[in-house]
Design a protein around this nucleic acid. Sequence first.
DNA 1: GCCTTTATAGTCAATCTGACTATTTACGGT
DNA 2: ACCGTAAATAGTCAGATTGACTATAAAGGC
Lengths: 251, 251
Amino acid sequence: MVTGIDIPEGYDPKAFAPFAVTVDLAVFTVRQAALHVLLVRRGQAPFAGAWALPGGFVLPDESAERAALRELAEETGLSRERAAGLHLEQLRTYSDPERDPRMRVVSVAFAALVPDLPEPRGGGDAAEAQWAPVASAVSLAFDHGRILADARRRIGDKLEYTSLATGFCPPEFTLGELQQVYETVWGVPLDRPNFRRKVLATPGFVEPVGGAAPRRTGGRGKPAALYRAGRAAVLHPPLLRPAADSSEGGC
Amino acid sequence: MVTGIDIPEGYDPKAFAPFAVTVDLAVFTVRQAALHVLLVRRGQAPFAGAWALPGGFVLPDESAERAALRELAEETGLSRERAAGLHLEQLRTYSDPERDPRMRVVSVAFAALVPDLPEPRGGGDAAEAQWAPVASAVSLAFDHGRILADARRRIGDKLEYTSLATGFCPPEFTLGELQQVYETVWGVPLDRPNFRRKVLATPGFVEPVGGAAPRRTGGRGKPAALYRAGRAAVLHPPLLRPAADSSEGGC
DNA sequence: GCCTTTATAGTCAATCTGACTATTTACGGT
DNA sequence: ACCGTAAATAGTCAGATTGACTATAAAGGC
């Protein structure tokens, strides 16, 4: 069966050991200067009581993207329409035969970014759910620890060369808030004047909002100008993260 | 079924409409200053006679990665060991319910990079296969046109901030050959002295090979020094592609 | 009204980039 | 052997970008 994806000889869908296909979501938000991820407590059999990434089965007539969007809405408590406005991107697929002890489950992982804090929770059923600082999200069920780590790295990387960071911000935001996102995800402080210069010099990243709108009430300093996300999805030139020192190399 | 991936109530693996899981491969190489992709001719039912990306079913006891590696070896005619040395990375998963008219098939797509030209072919069975310039690879079977386009874009993007380009080169290569890769994939000419300066200034990208080795016989000019891939996988700073002009934005 | 806080403007040297020019060292004839 | 051409490598230089700062402006809290 080398040529394209031809059904193997004698293949009978009902007889062949089936694959279940699921989606798993790493839903991130920035709260109080820390990156948080949405976790749910498992109630059932394998890893009962353990924390896991939210997710669920892909239904027979929907794509993984649709399933992910559905789960995202359910889990965050947002309407399907509001959820559709969030940044949701496919991360990668995890298919180790041993990743679920019950049966063969292939999971398509997604990363989602939500603005501030649409309250701790309010999901679909009785399951417990919470925002947890990514640093404290350890020993998750299944291979979710790895999925989370992969998602975290991907988000950090994409912050450099895409306008992804605006996905963490409300529709209108200040450059200070945007900088907070970068500092929080990367874990490094950035120089404020230089950050603003770079962001403003990158075409299509942000655009000023109309009136001379002051900052959200409650601020302690000079009011900041408001911006909204520009139409650029990819940043030219990129906003490079400070080199993590010298000859690292990475791998 | 919101909490993690719990088996839905009354779920019976054999009864539930099953998903088939396949892998599809976009195998790229650079030949005669053009980016080529490996295509196979379909012999069977849907899209019979059409060109398609090579691929096949994920077997019940292997991961998608293993299946992809297996297919890559079969398709290129390389041994499993040699194939394991090639760059092979997961691209993304395609799961539109309508993507295969026969049944529900979820496909995990991979992109692979192979050096020069391991001969046009010599695959596993009688299927026809060939290297085709990506520009001429149109109207492929299934959604393979889209997969190919996605793979192409991803490769181009990753050339900027990873050492991916060395995956197109033999173990030892000249900077001229490396530059060829960039120019071919990006479709833009690069200034040679500047390219060399940038590559050499990026730590871990390439390292000079021992002796004062001359270029492969047959060259017409001054022999070039040989380099091999360094240990850096990610480039700091990146080798940015010339801005495709002004306010494009992308999407 | 001060003082603190945060935003925004501006400066300046070091570095990087892009566009070139120059030199070196092969190969191919003649 | 000599000359012309091709390709690699070295070097130059002005303009743009960056990183590290300093200065000024505009709130809000006593």
